[in-house]
Amino acid sequence: MSSSNAVGYLAGIYQGFSGTIKGLMVTLRYLFKPSITVNYPVAKLKPYDRFRGALLFDAVTCIGCNLCVKACPSDCIDLQNMTTPEGKKIAKVSWYSIDFGKCNYCKLCEEACPTKPKSVWHSLDYENVFFSRHEMVRAWQQGDPWCGTYFDPADKKYRVSQEQIPIEEIPARR
């Protein structure tokens, strides 16, 4: 073996070992950095302001214009206007429902909403878990809370989903 080959061989060994040490140092450095994940059920991260969480609806401000229903690409919103005793529709919502099984959190309904503040909007709630398929369909009447009610087929009543733990109070953005 010529001398240049021997030198190259030793240089290769040196390179291999120094690269190995470098890699080890990287992991050692990260070992002593604080972790970026949080201890989820105990500590919760607040999402950024433009996060699109569960949809909320305010039946008081809604004018029943149907724009959100038309904007929805997955056909998950439905509403019914109130009527006068004569049967004439007025700018007030009687029933509003969102099927979260279909919703794809695209924010088109919120953009379409003409009221100020918005009548339907995304909260920061990323914890909207459902324990049954009935809970996925949220329905609103006048006077219901913003998170809506669901129809419980067991006792044929509308009730607020108790299991849902929202991440924060509703932000001012609407």
């Binding site: 919760k44 607040k46 009527t83 913003w146 607020v160 733990i165 991440i167 109070e169």
Partner: peptide
């Protein structure tokens, strides 16, 4: 229906359900 109250339009920040467990970072 007949007398929609305009006053409710001024919605203040409102907690609709307090979270029962966990601290918010």
């Amino acid at each position: 229906v007949t007398s929609p109250e305009k006053a409710v339009l001024s919605v203040t920040r409102q907690v609709f359900m307090t979270h029962t467990q966990g601290t918010l970072l």
